[in-house]
Computed example of a mutant assay.
Amino acid sequence: MAERSRSAAAVWSDPDFAGAWLAADPRGEHDLLALPRLIAARVVAEETPEPRLIVDVAGGGGAFLSVLLEAFPGARGVWLDASPTMLERARSELARFGDRVEFRPGDMTELRAAGVPGDADLIASSRASHHLDRAELHGFYQEAAGLLAGGGWLVNLDHIAPEEVWNRRFRSARKKFTPPRPAGTHHHDRPLPGIEDHLDGYRAAGITEVDIAWKAFYTCLFMGRAAPR
């Protein structure tokens, strides 16, 4: 496990920290990420209407996987996260899907070591890879791409670092849409990757069909499709 990823995993394994984050995570009308999750499902469905296997990497409380499994009732899901607290929440949130979901503890930088199966039709991740540096991020994309079936999708809904002038604008405007998180409920010890870090990572992993399907303030929905085999 890379050093930066190891540090982040240790923080999220703290039950008090992870619990406080979950309690402060916006829901309902304040959840700005409900729309991009639905967009991801809709775009995938345009060309892959019946995915068989969906893997949610660093799946947290299970919000993204829940949307995807509802959109694709014939699919089974694999949930992966390093946090025991997130596992507890995800088991509760995803219980209605029964044996369609398999839960695996593990880090996003060691997908094969965690037992993530290959030939996935869709590998998704949400709000996790911004804890990686550029090299680790590219390593994640490389490993994830290698676990995709031909024509499979790699989807990442994550925060990015904008230029400073936009950082100031976004920080002020965002307060009108979402309540501020309490101090100490999020962990960023280094600058976040930027948009180009993500796009370069997709392309270096061999996924050249990549675009930003949605963007608001600091968060982008990156979507890419592997070439058919």
Rank of each mutant, 00 (worst) to 15 (best):
F17L: 12
A114P: 07
R229W: 11
L132Y: 01
P51E: 02
L122F: 04
T185V: 10
R6V: 05
F170V: 07
D16C: 00
F140E: 03
A95P: 02
E50C: 09
K176G: 11
G98F: 11
A124T: 15
F170L: 07
G146N: 07
T85Y: 07
H30M: 07
L157Q: 03
D197S: 04
S83L: 03
L122W: 08
H138T: 13
G206T: 05
R203Y: 06
R104N: 03
A204C: 01
F103I: 08
L53Y: 05
L65Q: 10
A128F: 04
D133W: 05
F17S: 12
E50W: 03
I123E: 07
G59C: 12
R4G: 05
I212P: 00
A63R: 13
S13H: 03
R27E: 13
A8W: 08
A227Q: 14
A71D: 08
I195H: 11
A71I: 09
Y141W: 13
H187A: 09
G60T: 03
A34C: 00
A90S: 02
E143H: 09
L199G: 04
S126D: 10
G146Q: 06
G151S: 14
R96N: 02
V101C: 04
G152P: 06
Y218A: 06
A95V: 05
L111V: 03
A227T: 15
I212K: 00
E196W: 07
R89M: 01
R91H: 02
L80K: 12
L65S: 08
D31S: 11
D158S: 11
L33C: 03
P15C: 08
S13Q: 14
Q142F: 11
H186C: 00
E164P: 14
G194M: 02
R127D: 10
L157N: 02
L33I: 04
P84A: 00
P26L: 13
G224E: 08
K175C: 05
A41Q: 00
G150P: 13
G118W: 13
A128N: 06
Y141F: 15
P162N: 06
A24V: 12
L32H: 11
R225S: 13
N167C: 06
E143C: 04
D81K: 11
L192G: 00
I160V: 15
E70K: 12
D107Q: 15
I54F: 14
P73K: 08
A120W: 10
K215N: 01
P162T: 06
L33W: 02
L33G: 01
W12D: 02
